[in-house]
Design a protein around this nucleic acid. Structure first.
Lengths: 344, 344
DNA sequence: TTGAAAGCGCTAACAG
DNA sequence: CTGTTAGCGCTTTCAA
């Protein structure tokens, strides 16, 4: 397209030097007369020279490209766009990548079209919330493409680079908060145990119950239910939970679930927070605007994205080596759904 | 990194043919003995051969990479992640790109770090909601990089490829809806007139008022206000609007504005919908869960992203030529905020 | 029907 | 301090 781009040769010719000199001048390599270097740079600048990344990549083996990929079950297929937090995460990762002279490509989940790295040569990959059996991880390991997971790989990954929340501690914080708000009997409405977050939440819940000598009551939704009809899944799960025991507080991770649970409770004539306390997690911010506003466990997704990108980039240029583990902050945001005695 | 990738030479050697033959066999070029072609393919497959995109790109000049870039004011800087709809849009565009053997890279807005296409060689770019004076557009034109804008370029762009909503018609629909709901005096709380959407909304509003013989009352927020403190901006704007006239309905595009306006009205003792009817636009879905749920003008962002990607890809392989114009559907979603006489 | 060879733009030995 | 040269992996004339 259009009038051919200016190449290193054009610059060399215009500056009256060899291509090597140009290359060195522009990349601060070798020993060059500062004067020559300067002149070459001016010429290059004047000509609007831009190194061709493809050529550079061909020789260096690196592409300055990293990818971010959401790990989502393929069957049934989860709509990528349902997760608002990807937006924040991707935005931050992009910014971090660009600041270090890389770009970020977005990979669709699943393998139906093959992996991105079969199409684009990638220097590294960020995998968000790897699910059990995620095929991308073995593929990356086999291809020796460096990667960072956001959340631990539930299938192992002890030697991986991971940015993660301290899920067990956060879960305890949620449950402590509920207990302090007067909860006598707290039920967990768990998402399917497909990723480390879900698994660790359940474990955190069980341990907390053990520590506080309470009888756990956990209801785990199936993946099919949740994906095919989240409303119905939450509805059913709440029903099961309440049928089992006289629960007076629910921790329901995943914002869409939390919001639906709130509706389901209301439909049953149960008031929040008077009859049942409710906590969920933050995603698109629905919890905050719901009526009543729902207390959430919140994550700084932008921070997480930034950290993951930084970690990957560090791995790529050898500033860090495997394994890596970094913990991102969580915060409990109390709202009316857990303020039993407040006017709020 | 790791055990060198298998190159075309390896395949040629293993199959006992020349690299030319391999290239032809794999790309369906030239005239080859079908038997040879088949055998070469098997060998390549068996060896796990993947063409090196950098090499291919060096020769073809194409990279199979397209970018998506949000056009946002740099000063004051708008946080990319504030717009939930990017997530849906990017997800859909990614899927569309991948289906046609391309990948999508995300560009941060602004030019502080130079443009993406200075770092990654791109075949084309999607620019979301170009603002007045967006520097990317002239840059793209100059570099002759094909692009599609989502929403018209307010600075011209009559010869561009654009995917757009029919903003004037949608605005009319909103106002008609309000009028039908009993609105006597409808105010517009406009976002800054930085992009085509804002400009056309205002124009649509003015024309509608003219057609229906009403006196327009539009309050335009300044960019600084809106970016620095959206809550305060909306608050002030509502105040101004109400001070001017006895408005009984407001159309406040941009969901964050709409939600804030709702709060501001309540704080003033005005009930929605009884005292004031309210309509906003859809973004993260806050309007739907707000109390009362707010009627929105909704967009199918995924559809828009998909169309934009398709259009760009068509442009790239010559299936379409400039100019292009495609309209994406909008829908008015009535909720309680405009149901004056409903129990809802 | 197949192969040799040039060359895409760049970097990095190696010479001078 | 600067230039020559050999590739990186692939596509593509052009010849055989």
């Amino acid at each position: 397209m259009g009038g051919r781009r200016v190449s290193i040769k054009d610059v060399a010719r215009a500056a009256g030097v060899s291509v090597t000199t140009v290359s060195h001048a522009l990349n601060d390599k070798g020993r060059l007369n500062p004067h020559t270097r300067e002149r070459v740079r001016e010429v290059a600048d004047h000509l609007g020279y831009r190194p061709n990344p493809a050529a550079r990549s061909l020789v260096s083996g690196r592409t300055q490209l990293i990818a971010v990929m959401a790990s989502l079950p393929e069957d049934p297929p989860v709509e990528f766009s349902e997760f608002a937090y990807y937006s924040a995460l991707i935005g931050a990762a992009t910014t971090a990548a660009v600041a270090r002279d890389h770009s970020l490509v977005v990979s669709p989940p699943g393998t139906r079209n093959g992996f991105v790295w079969d199409r684009v040569p990638l220097d590294g990959v960020i995998v968000i919330d790897p699910i059990v059996g995620e095929p991308a991880l073995p593929a990356l390991r086999e291809r020796e493409i460096p990667f960072v997971t956001i959340g631990r790989d539930p299938d192992g990954g002890d030697n991986d680079a991971v940015v993660s929340y301290d899920v067990e501690a956060s879960t305890s914080a949620v449950l402590d908060h509920l207990a302090e708000a007067g909860a006598k009997d707290i039920g967990l409405l768990s998402i399917p145990l497909v990723n480390a977050f879900a698994q660790e939440t359940l474990r955190g819940y069980e341990r907390w119950c053990e520590r506080t000598a309470r009888e756990p009551a956990a209801e785990v939704m199936t993946l099919d239910q949740l994906v095919l009809d989240p409303d119905d899944a939450a509805e059913t799960a709440v029903g099961n939970l309440l049928a089992r025991r006289d629960i007076d507080a629910i921790y329901a991770p995943l914002e869409i679930v939390g919001v639906t649970v709130a509706r389901a409770l209301r439909r049953r004539g149960l008031a929040i927070p008077d009859d049942v306390l409710l906590v969920t997690t933050e995603d698109a911010g629905h919890a905050a605007v719901a009526d009543p506003p729902i207390t959430t466990l919140s994550f700084d997704h932008a921070d997480t994205g930034r950290r993951a990108a930084e970690m990957l980039l560090d791995l790529l240029d050898g500033r860090r080596t495997l394994p890596q583990w970094e913990t991102a902050a969580t915060a409990l945001v109390p709202r009316r759904s857990t303020a039993r005695h407040a006017a709020g």
